[in-house]
Simulated scan of single mutants.
Amino acid sequence: MATTRRNDIRTKFQDKDIPTQSDFDLIFDSFVHKDEDKANFQIVEAGTSNEHYITPALLKAVFQNSGILSGNCYAPYKEFIDDFTGLSIELEHQPIENSVKVFKNGQLLEEKKDYALNHNTGVIAFSGIITSRNIEVNYWFKNINPTSGDSDSMFGKASIPYKENFSELTFNSDTITLKETPLTYSARIYKNGQLLRENKDYSIVDGSKIVKFSAPISNRNIEVDYWYAGPISLTDPELNTKYVDLTTNQSIKGNKTFTETVESNAFIKTGGASNQYLMADGSVTTSTGSDYDAGHAPFAIPLTGGYQKFSNGLILQWDYIMNGSTNYTFPIAFPNRVGSIVLSTYRNSSGNKGFNHVYNVTGTSYNAIIDGSTGYMFAIGY
C-alpha cells in the first residue's frame, strides 16, 4: 500500500496548489477505512497481514477461543426440555455471557423481554409461565475438564464460527455434507427460519461433516450455523515458550525450585536412553537404583557387610571379619579392580602377633589375617 506522511499531505494544499489524482490516491491510501480495512477471523487465522485492524469484539473472540490462556476452555453445549411447564430452568453449566440462545418450539426468544438470565447461577427465569412447550437452550460454558464428555475438547485451540445456506431452489435431499466438521453441540439448523431439533429432526454423524435429516427436505431454505476447530493453537512457538502443557514436547530452561515431592515414571538425560538412570550430578548409569543404597554391617552372626556405589564408578565396601587365615567374599564384586584394603583388629589390649594383613586379593574375595578374634575390613575400588 502506497502511503504519504501527514506533513507531505499538508504541502499538497499550500499556496493554492491543486492536488493531482495521484496525490488524492496517496492521501486516501494513507488512512484506514473502517469497513475495507477491518480484519475478520480468517485474516487473524492467516496471521500475515500488517494492513488491517482488529476491533475489540474480534480480539475478545480470539481470547475467548484460546481459553487455555486462563487455564480453561470455552465449549458449546445444548439442553433440551420437552413438554416443559414452569417459570424457570437451571442450566447444567454456568453459561458464558452473551452466548445463550433460548428457543420455544423452535422460535428464538428475546432476552430481558421473554426471559431473564443469571449467569452466575445459570438460572433462566421466564417472564410468564410456559405450558407444554419444547424448550431448547444453546450456549457456551467454561470447560475446566479437557476430557469431559460434555463437548469437544478445545484446549489450546481456537474455534471459528461459520454459516452455510442451501436454497430452496436447489436443495432436495436428506443429507448435507458441510465444508467443515462442526464442534459437538455447536450446530443450529433452520428450515425456513424454524429451528430444527438435533437427534430428532436431524443427526450429525460423530466426528464428521455429514448432517442426516430424519426425512428428505425439498422446497425449503436451509441454514446451518456452527463452529469448527481452527488452526490457531497454543503450540505455536511464541506461546510454547511461556506455558507448560501436558502433551507437547517442550524445553524448560532456568533453575526451578519445587516445594513438594516430584514424581516421575522415568528421567532420561538428553542423549541418554530409557534404560539409564539419571544421577544427581547429571551423569547416567545402567545400574539399578538399589545399587546406590548404602549397605549395612551388623555386629552379629551371620556376618554381612555393606557397600556404597558412586556415580563415577567408585565403590566403598566394609565388613566385620573373624580371626584366622580365612578367605572372605566382598559384599559385592569390584567390576574392575581393588584399590586398597585396610584391616583393623577389634580388641582393648595389645595383641601377640602385632600385624594385620591380606593376600590372594581378587575382585570378588580376599584372605585376611588379623591380630585378634574379630576385626574390621574397609576396601576401596571401582
Score class of each variant (00 low, 15 high):
280 A>H: 07
328 Y>G: 09
236 D>N: 14
29 D>E: 09
219 N>R: 05
253 K>M: 01
337 R>S: 15
231 P>V: 08
201 D>I: 08
359 Y>V: 03
2 A>R: 10
231 P>T: 12
343 L>E: 03
239 L>D: 03
159 S>T: 13
137 V>C: 05
79 E>M: 14
320 Y>W: 15
16 K>C: 11
100 V>T: 10
342 V>F: 10
88 S>E: 15
93 H>S: 03
298 P>T: 09
5 R>V: 01
11 T>F: 08
124 I>E: 05
238 E>N: 09
71 G>Y: 03
247 T>R: 08
117 L>P: 03
147 T>P: 01
26 L>K: 11
262 V>S: 11
5 R>T: 14
138 N>G: 09
373 S>K: 12
46 A>V: 09
161 P>A: 10
330 F>N: 09
285 T>A: 11
176 I>N: 04
134 N>S: 15
121 T>H: 03
264 S>A: 15
130 I>H: 09
213 F>T: 11
335 P>E: 13
153 S>L: 00
150 D>S: 11
127 S>H: 12
337 R>V: 10
286 T>V: 13
287 S>P: 00
169 L>N: 15
323 N>W: 02
346 Y>C: 08
235 T>C: 05
261 T>M: 06
316 L>N: 02
295 G>I: 06
33 H>T: 02
371 D>L: 02
38 K>S: 01
72 N>V: 09
327 N>R: 12
371 D>Q: 01
